[in-house]
Design a protein around this nucleic acid. Structure first.
Lengths: 214, 214
DNA sequence: CAGGTGACTTGACACTGTCAAGTTAGTGTG
DNA sequence: CACACTAACTTGACAGTGTCAAGTCACCTG
């Protein structure tokens, strides 16, 4: 049964009456930069409406193509989600670096700043931050994703490097810090804890951190 | 266009040839205990196939009713998810209590045991543990959910109570411990950290925990 | 200029959540 | 005990979604 076309369909196909204006040229079939446009569309939809608002068809519509166009660039919805999350990790890394570089140049101040960057990103990009750990929804073996998440981890690992690992093994401090700050961000997002009553700045001193001697 | 019935449809409607056997009585229309059956179906589907395997229609099918039957008991899929997660929190609380009660009766041993219970549950029930913090997918204001999650939090808060809050405020220790263990569980689930290389038991001593004096 | 292929579009199908209308079984009252 | 009402379902439909197949168009190469 043929269905009635929606306005969106008409807009998409250029069927709106009147000639093409300079600001609305006839849309070529070959987009030219569709992969990037789809990822940016996904990032925007996630920010605007949360996880439930992010669908393959909405990304395609936002990018101005048909629902099947993404299939040439991504391995299904999961493939597109993976690219979106990789982009999110890049922004995340950038936020932590900006916070770190704005801090005093002592190991403790830099560590605190990186953690604050982490929490600021998680607070300002809640749906993206949540999606980053939904391993059912992404291809976590994807090289671009791996590179982007490793870069984020590296910023935190470098901030932890000056501190004594003690008996916890070579990665003890970074696992401790990453667990703490990711857990705090999750509980804050879920509303389980009151971040005004118990700010992160108050619990970081509870760690037994000592600078390495040498 | 009428569609061909599936075997599942036939099974559901009792259209399979032959009389009802003793082990397969005629199914009454009034289930009697459908709410509980749907939640249990959801818990099982989550355990078997992860988050993507949990749908309203599959829960209904597993419980032996039509796709619209859950609507009488739950406010849509979100309502059912909320009840499933509340059940998960109850099992979670039970797991932490069992670990705590099996430990030596010192504050430190009990705290370690509660954390180990937390991580054991998160490891053995990965999809449920993840779903507990997906606040987009549940009604977090639901009273049964609130009660169940508060009970879980209470077990951890009680284990933290003997320790010095220091300058962090009255909830400093429990926020510290909850953040740490939830973050560690998330990173373990995501495969971001190697739990064999950096066991939780190695990072807990990095906390500056002291018993309260009185 | 012709052929091949990349990059799309169109259409279809199965699955999903939700809603509306209808049906059946259980309960309460006279 | 009979009847009426309502709870607890079933059936059917629709919109949205992901995915697949077939077809079309635009670009590139020989």
């Amino acid at each position: 049964m043929p269905r009635e076309r929606t306005l969106l369909d008409s807009v998409k196909r250029g069927a709106i009456t009147g000639p093409m204006t300079a600001s609305q040229p006839a849309k070529p079939r070959h987009h030219g930069n569709l992969k990037t446009a789809l990822v940016e569309a996904g990032v925007a939809l996630l920010a605007e409406g949360g996880h439930g608002a992010l669908t393959l068809r909405k990304c395609a519509a936002r990018a101005g193509v048909s629902h099947a166009a993404p299939a040439h660039h991504f391995n299904g919805l999961k493939g597109l989600m993976t690219a979106i999350v990789a982009q999110g990790f890049k922004l995340f890394t950038q936020t932590m670096i900006e916070h770190r570089d704005a801090a005093s140049n002592t190991p403790h101040a830099r560590l605190v700043a990186v953690c604050n960057g982490y929490l600021a990103f998680a607070q300002d990009n809640q749906a993206m931050a949540a999606l980053m750990y939904m391993t059912d929804e992404i291809f976590s073996c994807d090289p671009e994703f791996q590179t982007a998440s490793a870069a984020a981890y590296q910023v935190l690992a470098e901030a932890c490097a000056p501190f004594n690992t003690g008996s916890a093994g070579p990665k003890g401090v970074e696992v401790l810090i990453w667990s703490l700050v990711e857990g705090y961000a999750s509980l804050a997002r879920a509303g389980t804890i009151d971040t005004s009553e118990t700010p992160f700045a108050d619990i970081l001193p509870r760690l037994n951190l000592q600078l390495q001697k040498n």
